[in-house]
Design a protein around this nucleic acid. Structure first.
Lengths: 208, 208
DNA sequence: TACTTTTGTCACCAGTTAGTGATATAATTT
DNA sequence: AAATTATATCACTAACTGGTGACAAAAGTA
């Protein structure tokens, strides 16, 4: 018999990795004490010992990853330095950036779907964090644009546009056409990105 | 013992009603052979006999209900009779109509979430039907507006807006604020409806 | 070396799932 | 009234779920 290496931290990491693998491969629905321990090749009792149960493990998992849509430092700087005229284009860039990030990140997609279905300690915490980050970005853009609240409800408008992109990205997991747009091809997604461009342009024309 | 009434059709209906009740009360996640038979107060073996299993029952359930967002005859007629100038306002009415319908229909919400999570015979069929109906309506509006495809990608724009409303309605089940908009209050939803108005107005201003 | 603690495995529990074969009883036909 | 068919119940299976107590073996300490 080869002697078994024993290392608590390494073992804990194996469980966290197993969670990630299962989510990416089979979706959040497949997450459970048994599936995880099987995937990790370790006994499930360790999940109770090291993480105090499934909730604790999921928390450790969430802590280790960034589960809000990542806003690059680059974009943040662009906003700081942007002139008022550039901001319109920046809004488009930010929106399309979020779309691409979500489309390419299967783990994030699953997490967002999970948030929509189940309300547990984990999903609530993650959703709250993302809402905070997203809203901060939104506020920064709004300030730059310098539009009086009375004139244009930028928050409400942005919430519709962001939601639209979220939905389309998540929907494309299980469907190939939405309202005549092929969301399973690059050509389709280019149409969506152009549409965002069009909407934003026309919106702020009336102001600028 | 009170004699048990025996009536196949009535019994089948009881199962279908049970499916509906469970979905509304506990969500699609709770659907299963055991929960349904328990809710119906009947033996689960009847589900196999009368519907050839869960899939068959769900099919019967879906057939009996309208699982696409209902477009009232009234609105259809309005579109037919609308002048070119009215159409812009009609788009707003149709969008806000869909939002209200979805917000008030818990069963529909659950079905739409289900479609996003699982790809089975039922969810595929329902989604396909809704896509068809929705796209028909969209095409009707587009024709009326008489905008050349080259000028404005109406399908893509509408897909973003409709998606946005879908997402917000579904998200409001588990979250109370999105991008600073309170989607758990009427005031918040009024902001969303106004934002739709704003977006559509600005979009088609450039054309008309 | 002998003892203790940490790390990991194994075997089992009670509860739930989908699915089925045998049986009882109501309704219909002969 | 007797026989047949349709309708519904019951009791069971095998596989899975989350959860736990008893044990084994490695690592650290006296």
């Amino acid at each position: 018999m080869a002697k078994t290496e024993r290392n608590k931290e390494q073992t804990k990491q194996k469980f966290i990795d197993a969670v990630s693998k299962i989510i990416v491969r089979d979706g959040f629905k497949a997450i459970g004490i048994n599936t995880i321990s099987k995937e990790a090749g370790l006994d499930k009792v360790l999940i109770y010992r090291y993480f105090d149960g499934l909730d604790g493990l999921l928390h450790a998992f969430a802590k280790q990853k960034d589960f809000y849509i990542n806003i690059s430092e680059e974009i943040y700087k662009s906003i700081e330095n942007a002139s008022k005229d550039d901001v319109k284009q920046l809004v488009v860039v930010v929106l399309n950036n979020q779309l691409r990030e979500l489309r390419s990140n299967k783990e994030l997609q699953e997490l967002m779907l999970w948030e929509m279905i189940e309300r547990n300690e984990l999903t609530i915490a993650i959703a709250k964090e993302r809402e905070k980050k997203g809203y901060e970005l939104s506020k920064k853009l709004k300030e730059k644009m310098n539009i009086p609240d009375a004139e244009l409800d930028v928050d409400a408008i942005m919430s519709i546009l962001v939601s639209g992109l979220y939905y389309l990205a998540l929907r494309s997991r299980t469907v190939d056409v939405f309202n005549g747009v092929e969301i399973d091809t690059n050509a389709g997604w280019l149409r969506i990105e152009s549409a965002i461009q069009t909407i934003v342009n026309n919106l702020f024309n009336s102001i600028n």
